[in-house]
Amino acid sequence: MPDLVAGLGPYLPLLLEGARTTLLLFVLTLPIGFLIALPFAFARNARNRALRGLGHGFVLFFRGAPLLVVLFLVYYGLPQVPGIRQSVLWFLLRDPFTVAVIALSLNSAGFQTHIIAGALRNVPANEVEAARAAGFSRPQVFRFIVAPHAVRLGIRSFGNEAVFVLKGTAVVSFITVRDLMGAANQVYFRTFELVPPLVFAALVYLAAVFAVSRFVRLVEWHATPQLRRAR
C-alpha cells in the first residue's frame, strides 16, 4: 500500500478528486432515485389498471435499457428535442455532471420502484386489517405498520441496488465527467503505469461497497426486532 501511494505520487490529488466525484454522484443518485421511485411504486400497486401499467412500464423500461444508452439519450439526445433549448430545463442539460445525476437517478428509480412496490405489496394483509380494527387511521397504518415492515422486507434488495448505483457511476466518464474511473484512466494514459491507478480505484470501490453493506446490515438490525432479541 505505501508503495502504491508513492507510485501514484503527483497523481494522488487527481484520483482523490475523482473519488470525491464518484461518492458525490452516489449520495445524490440514491435519494433522488428514491424520490422519483416512490410515486411510481404506489402507481405499481394501485387498483387502477392504467396506473399499474404505468408503474410496470417504468420498471421494465429501465430493467431493459442499458445505463449507457440512457446516459447518451439524456446527454446527446434530449438537447435535440425541439423546444428544449428554449425551456427552463436547458440549464440542467448543459452541465455533464447534472446530466449524469439525472440519468443515474432515473435508471436507479426504475429498479427502486420494483423493490419498493414489492416490499409494500408483501406486507401481510392481516397486519393491516388488525391495525384498522384497532382503530388506526389509514395514514397511521402506513406510518406504524406498513412502512416499518416494508423497510424490513426491502432493505437487502435496496442494499444490492445501492451497490449497483455505485458501480454504475463509472459510466459517467463517457460524458467527460471525471469520476474515479475516469481519473484512474487518465493517470494510466499519462504515466503508462497500469497497476497503481487501477488498484487504487478498485480499493476505493471495494471500501465503498463494504461500507454500504455494513450500513445495510445496521439498518436491517434496527428494523427487525426479532434479530435484536435473539442476541
Binding site: K167, A170, S173, M181, L194, A201, A202, Y205, L206
Partner: peptide
C-alpha cells in the same frame, strides 16, 4: 465479492490493458 463490487468498466480496462501489457 470483488467482481460484484467493481464497476464492469474497471474490469474491462484491467483485462484489456493488462493483457496487452
Amino acid at each position: 465479492v470483488v467482481m460484484r463490487s467493481l464497476p464492469e468498466l474497471l474490469v474491462i480496462f484491467a483485462v484489456y490493458y493488462g493483457f496487452s501489457f
